[in-house]
C-alpha cells in the first residue's frame, strides 16, 4: 500500500512535468515564429560610394495578377551588361522579402545578362541600334520558382517591363537557365520563345457582356 503523501507527491511532480513541457513547447513555438517573421535572406547592402539614380521596377502582384511600375532609388554600375544584371537581381530580390506581393525564393537569381545587337543575321526584325537581351537565370531560381501559368508569366513580364524601362535600346529578350535553353520556367511559361520588350503594365479586366 502506497502512503497517501507519496501519491500526492507523485501526482504533483507529474503535473509539474506536464506544465514545464507545455511551457517549453510554447516557448519554442514563440521563438520559431519570431525567427521566421524576420527571415530575410537578403544580403546586407554594401556601402555605396556612387550616387543613386531613379529606376522603375515593374512589380507583379499575385492578389490581382497585375503589374505596376514603381519608382525606386538604386546605385547601378555603368557597364550595361553588369547594370542589367544588378537591376534584375534587385528586382527579384525584392520578391524574396517577407510580405512580398509576388513571393519568390530567396537567393541569387540572375547569372548574367548579355546584350547582343540585333542584325539581319540574328533576327528578321532588324532595327537601328536595337539589342537582344539574353537573361541567363540560375537553375536554383527556376527550380524553386512557384509553379503555375499565371505566377510564372507575372515573373517574366516583370523582368521584361523592368528592362524596357531601364534600357530603351533593348527590343527583345530571351531566357536561358544555367546557360542552356529550357522549355519552361517552372513547368508552364514558355522560355523557348523571344519576348518583345514592351511596357508590361497590366491590370486584368473583368469579363463583359458587350459581346
Amino acid at each position: 500500500m502506497i502512503p497517501r503523501y507519496q501519491r500526492i507527491l507523485f501526482w504533483t511532480l507529474a503535473a509539474a512535468i506536464l506544465l514545464m513541457t507545455a511551457f517549453l513547447l510554447h516557448g519554442c513555438q514563440q521563438a520559431h515564429k519570431r525567427l521566421t517573421a524576420h527571415n530575410d535572406d537578403t544580403p546586407i547592402a554594401a556601402p555605396v560610394t556612387t550616387s543613386t539614380e531613379d529606376i522603375t521596377l515593374y512589380l507583379a502582384n499575385d492578389a490581382d495578377a497585375s503589374i505596376a511600375p514603381v519608382q525606386q532609388q538604386l546605385a547601378l554600375p555603368q557597364d550595361p551588361t553588369v547594370r542589367a544584371r544588378v537591376l534584375l537581381d534587385h528586382l527579384l530580390t525584392a520578391y524574396a522579402l517577407p510580405g512580398s506581393a509576388h513571393p519568390l525564393p530567396s537567393g541569387p537569381a540572375v547569372d548574367d545578362v548579355f546584350l547582343v545587337p540585333i542584325t539581319a543575321s540574328t533576327q528578321t526584325h532588324s532595327t537601328d541600334n536595337s539589342q537582344l537581351a539574353v537573361v541567363n537565370l540560375r537553375a536554383s531560381f527556376a527550380d524553386n520558382h512557384p509553379s503555375g501559368v499565371q505566377v510564372e508569366t507575372l515573373t517574366l513580364l516583370s523582368i521584361v517591363g523592368t528592362l524596357h524601362a531601364a534600357f530603351p535600346r533593348i527590343a527583345q529578350v530571351r531566357f536561358l537557365v544555367d546557360g542552356q535553353p529550357r522549355e519552361t520556367l517552372a513547368g508552364h511559361a514558355d522560355l523557348t520563345r523571344t519576348y518583345p520588350v514592351t511596357d508590361t503594365t497590366f491590370k486584368p479586366t473583368p469579363p463583359t457582356t458587350d459581346n
Partner: peptide
C-alpha cells in the same frame, strides 16, 4: 469572356489574363 461570365454567375472569382505557353 463567355467562360468568365459563367464563372461569375456561379460566384467563382475569375481572372482573365494572357500568357505564352505550349
Amino acid at each position: 469572356n463567355e467562360l468568365g461570365l459563367s464563372l461569375q454567375n456561379a460566384k467563382l472569382p475569375v481572372t482573365l489574363t494572357r500568357a505564352s505557353l505550349r
